[in-house]
């Protein structure tokens, strides 16, 4: 009975601490989604792949959205012709490298400021590296879902070499494609459907609507995200509370004190729990006394990049193969960096 009571107190404490941050995150993300024109942003991005990846990773400071909001933004960035490095950098870093997440993490870990700065630093580093790696694939389209790929502008300059992904992606002959084609401004044939899809995706940028409409949409978006993310937050807090109270301390300690097992356990937990990045630091905090600092970092860095919840979301942009690459690279880099922290720093 006491245990149940403790679990419930922990559960409500996590929720009460996290909900204000969730609310701020949701309001900001809705406002920016409706008031910032991504096309201008894309035009400002550097062309150099490494700088592009870094710049893309920092865009989160302008779009403080957590992972549920950033995939749709990344998708619009891709459709509007952002280079791969920028889009991937943004996709991976934006949920972590932004002022609201910084504040929430600071609130939770003000006793261990190194966690806050290492979280931001590692996320930037990993996102930049992966964005850079992906930039070697000049034409992103074979890695994207057909609907997104079709609505992308063709890469400029020489025709991209068809990679091995492209063959699996489009088995039909390039010469003999059925369907209706239009010539675009540069004289390249474009599929009729692609024109429609591009228009539809471009229309989702609502920055041209009158202010009152945008405010209506913003209210709608706030409620919608609050509902979705609140649901995930409740499940995540419940898991954290149950783990804290139900699993014997010896088990948690033996898992949490090993330099390698603790990192693996926390990465797995991050992947499963899928808690939103604005509030995940409070979840991690409940493990702070039993788990190594490296493993807490692994949770805070890896969780926002890829988890069960956002795989569904990523599938709306990328093909499965690209997600496997993203996942493997992010997991390995997180593991490596946090292991260094566990072995050499703390």
């Amino acid at each position: 009975m006491t245990q149940l009571n403790n679990a419930l107190t922990l559960f409500f404490s996590l929720l009460v601490e996290a909900i204000p941050f969730l609310l701020i995150g949701v309001v900001f993300s809705s406002a920016l989604l409706l008031f910032v024109d991504e096309r201008k942003l894309v035009a400002m991005m550097p062309k150099n792949p490494l700088l592009g990846a870094l710049a893309g990773s920092m865009v989160g400071f302008l779009f403080p959205v957590c992972e549920c909001g950033n995939v749709p933004v990344a998708r619009r960035l891709i459709v509007q012709g952002a280079p791969a490095s920028v889009a991937i950098g943004f996709l991976l870093a934006a949920p972590t490298v932004n002022p609201i997440v910084f504040w929430a993490t600071w609130t939770a870990f003000r006793g261990q400021p190194e966690i806050v700065f290492l979280r931001i630093g590692f996320s930037l580093l990993i996102a930049t590296i992966i964005g850079w790696v992906f930039s070697s694939q000049a034409d992103l389209r074979p890695l994207l879902q057909p609907a997104v790929a079709q609505s992308m502008p063709a890469p400029q300059g020489r025709r991209s070499r068809r990679s091995k992904f492209a063959q699996s992606a489009e088995p039909a002959s390039e010469l003999l494609q059925s369907g209706t084609f239009l010539l675009n401004s540069s004289g390249q044939p474009m599929r009729m459907e692609a024109v429609g899809a591009q228009a539809a995706l471009a229309a989702s940028s609502v920055t041209t609507k009158p202010l009152s409409d945008r405010l209506q949409l913003m209210l709608d978006n706030v409620v919608q995200e609050l509902r979705e993310l609140g649901g995930v937050l409740i499940l995540g807090s419940a898991i954290a509370a149950i783990v804290q109270v139900a699993i014997p301390r010896e088990v948690i300690l033996s898992l949490g004190q090993g330099p390698i097992t603790s990192i693996l356990a926390m990465m797995l937990l991050a992947w499963v729990v899928s808690i939103c990045s604005t509030v995940d630091s409070f979840f991690a905090l409940s493990f702070a006394s039993t788990f190594t600092s490296g493993s807490l970092l692994a949770f805070l860095v890896f969780g926002p990049m890829i988890d069960v919840k956002n795989i569904g979301l990523l599938l709306s942009v990328f093909r499965g193969r690209a997600i496997v690459y993203l996942f493997a690279l992010a997991a390995q880099l997180t593991f490596l960096l946090t292991l260094i922290i566990n072995l050499y720093v703390s």
Partner: peptide, 11 residues
């Protein structure tokens, strides 16, 4: 008549 934002739902 207002466009709806693309949204992902888990539940």
């Amino acid at each position: 008549s207002l466009p709806t934002m693309q949204h992902f739902s888990l539940f």
